[in-house]
Amino acid sequence: MEGDIVQMGAYIGAGLACLGMGGAGIGVGHVAGNYLAGALRNPAAAPGQTAFLFIGIAFAEALGIFSFLVALLLMFAV
């Protein structure tokens, strides 16, 4: 009984942790959208900034992956 409650809590926690991925999605979209807006304003400067685009996406995405990892840990390791 007690174990079931713990498992339920873990699964609920895992589901809640997945909300963090939405934040990462917003972040990645923000980075990519601003890059596109800037690139359309000044297309000549765009190719030099693609590295920063990917670095920004990587940083934003990392946090989503952390939340995914928390969800996985709750489901499989707790």
Binding site: A58, A62, I65, F66, F68, L69
Partner: peptide
Amino acid sequence: VSHSIRLAGAMMA
């Protein structure tokens, strides 16, 4: 931490 977990997490996910 972020350097390693980003790669492993993305692949695993």
